[in-house]
């Protein structure tokens, strides 16, 4: 389809079509973000045996996030006097844009994929790496030592954990023989990769938590030591953009885990009459819940422990996993 569009005469219809698709996707994700934040607070409240937000929108607090967003939009946008004005403005955009770009390759159901790239997995990893620059730039431009520390920590953490993340993916790629996410789903017709690649799944999940900067790896914005990390100086709408980027990544990463290890839209055994998108949504919500669960039950770990875990435990494990997978594939699946 892309080739036809590229060689055809340019038309406003195509522009309109793609803009419309993009806007539709962004609306869906924003709806998810709205309720992910609420779910986060509700689950946290449930685990800490308290009611959680229950004032706005009935007992469930359905409109709580909307009210929060409204508050953020109405707040004053403060730019610190000694901040680097240009970079301070550009940094949220650099952090946010990749968060939306990674959604393009994720197959949400049999028919809904925006871009069927044959390097889909690598595309995700490469593009999501761009966000680090926005975070470091935000920390640097704020001209504040807490921000700078937060930014540097973010960069160090994300770079160290990107390596085990990619290496654990190699097992899946080896078994599939393709980096196309659609092919990976199709290869899980009988057995999901969580069963054939359990070590890879565990490594990937831990590395994903670190990539998302969520608890127990949320050193980047450890409020007890760094105030607010890289976003200390940000207020109002610009701060909201950073939060939005964070939850967009939660969405994207959960989708990716669903696709890579839980069989994407593949149904469970004989329940094939339920459409694929419903299966995808169910698995996806389960992964999101896992993320929330882990966040509220583990204490935050120290910065040096974080680095040690990444380089001394996850990286050798991931390498061993690749090695073993290659041998097994060579012996049994030729």
């Amino acid at each position: 389809m892309m080739n036809e569009i590229m060689t055809s005469q340019p038309s406003w219809l195509n522009v309109l079509k793609f803009t419309g698709l993009g806007v539709a996707l962004i609306l869906v994700v924003i709806l998810f973000v709205t309720y992910a934040i609420l779910a986060e607070r509700k689950v946290m409240a449930f685990m800490q045996m308290r009611p959680g937000p229950n004032r706005i929108g009935g007992k469930l607090g359905i409109l709580q996030t909307l009210a929060d967003v409204l508050k953020l939009l109405l707040k004053e946008n403060i730019t610190p006097k000694s901040a680097d004005k240009l970079l301070f403005l550009v940094a949220p955009v650099i952090a946010f844009a990749p968060a939306f770009m990674v959604m393009a390759v994720i197959p949400f159901s049999e028919n809904v994929t925006f871009a069927n790239l044959n390097v889909g997995v690598l595309y995700y990893v490469g593009i999501s790496g761009l966000s680090i620059i926005g975070i470091v730039a935000a920390g640097w431009a704020s001209n504040n030592k807490y921000s700078l520390l937060g930014g540097m920590r973010a960069a160090a953490q994300m770079i160290s954990y990107e390596i085990p993340l990619v290496l654990s993916l190699l097992g899946v790629i080896l078994l599939t023989g393709s980096m196309n996410l659609n092919d990976i789903i199709k290869a899980q017709d009988n057995v999901w990769y969580i069963f054939t690649q359990p070590i890879a799944f565990v490594i990937f999940f831990i590395a994903a938590i670190a990539e998302l900067n969520r608890g127990p790896f949320d050193l980047v914005e450890a409020e007890s030591e760094l105030v607010g990390g890289f976003s200390t100086e940000y207020t109002g709408f610009r701060w909201a953009i950073f939060m939005l980027a964070e939850y967009f990544y939660l969405f994207a990463m959960s989708s990716l885990i669903t696709v890579l290890f839980l069989g994407g839209w593949q149904p469970v055994m004989f329940l094939g009459f339920i459409p694929g998108s419903v299966w995808f949504a169910l698995k996806f919500l389960f992964v999101v819940f896992l993320f929330l669960w882990i966040r509220f039950t583990f204490p935050r770990i120290r910065a040096d422990q974080l680095m040690e875990l990444g380089w001394k435990v996850l990286l050798p494990l991931a390498l061993a996993n690749v090695f073993i997978t290659a041998i097994i594939k060579e012996i049994f699946f030729r």
Binding site: L122, Y123, V125, G126, I127, G129, I132
Partner: peptide
């Protein structure tokens, strides 16, 4: 292209 993004823009 992906290698370019990964190595240059990221790394």
């Amino acid at each position: 292209a992906v290698a370019q993004v990964l190595v240059y823009s990221g790394g």
